[in-house]
Design a protein around this nucleic acid. Structure first.
Lengths: 91, 91, 91, 91
DNA sequence: GCTTGGGGCGTTCGAC
DNA sequence: GTCGAACGCCCCAAGC
């Protein structure tokens, strides 16, 4: 039983149950990947339209990134507040 | 034109319109990014479950990649087939 | 010539020049890794002292992270300004 | 004690001292982090150069890791040797 | 043992 | 179409 985790105590060949689970997992992943690809396509489209209207995509991406940072920073600040509170004795 | 230099020689209206377009674009992008994040979360979840059942995620990812390649190959072949067909008179 | 980039047109055995270069590269990397380890040790020491004085290291780390974010955000903002400028015609 | 709740029942002086200590600690950490970033940049540079000369960075990293292991093994052996020596009377 | 941060890797996007 | 750089994702290791 040379390689990989042992998914079946009896044999190296994957058992029927594991095979079914594997198929289900693969299908779920591929379905999600498809959805992801659609989103990616939409994004590309939006950026393409924007470019066609004269917007600089690089600037757009920077704005998005900056706004994302703002959001992350606000959330981290809240987390820090919580930390202070707990560090001060759990009150 | 209350303050600052006018960066548009024609009219503030154009700038206003551009501002509105920009807001719309940013919103569309951020909405799509949120959807994308949800999908990413779901994917993470599926891989997590699979791992919990003893599957090797690295292998799973490899399988997905291989199947994706296969699919691309098949589609390429089909496209080539269509091309030949149309070259032969659309039949 | 089964694997890897061809570093020598004549032979699979790495030539003398390449061997020398490799040694130099490895030495430079290992020297830098040593320096890095020293820094890491110093950091550990500082956090240790701080902890000994009653500071919560987790909070400290969070503060450091937040300040780092602030700095990154400021720098990105400046970069965005530059981008706007160049996007507006290179002026 | 101008505004807000007093989080220290003893004295504001302690808070002032702690504030100074905190600043010092933060500064020391940030200074070390900067040094660390410089080293990281240098490492990146070296790997970049190596790549430019046709070396496979992944292989290089593996070599570094292996040599690091070897070094650890040798040191472990030396330590064991010292232990034996001292057990034999310090000679 | 769990969780969080850092490093490495693959992918994607923009430039030429 | 190729190239290099930037981004996000994953894994691992250190801290608690």
């Amino acid at each position: 039983m040379p390689n990989g985790k042992d998914l079946d105590a009896e044999s190296d060949v994957i058992n029927e149950a594991a095979k079914g689970r594997l198929q289900t997992i693969i299908e779920r992943i591929e379905r999600l990947e498809e959805d992801k690809a659609v989103i990616a396509g939409d994004l590309k489209e939006v950026y393409g339209e924007a470019k066609g209207e004269g917007f600089d995509t690089k600037v757009l991406r920077k704005i998005i990134a900056l706004r994302k940072q703002d959001k992350a920073k606000r959330e981290e600040f809240d987390a820090l507040l919580d930390l202070y509170m707990s560090a001060l004795g759990g009150l």
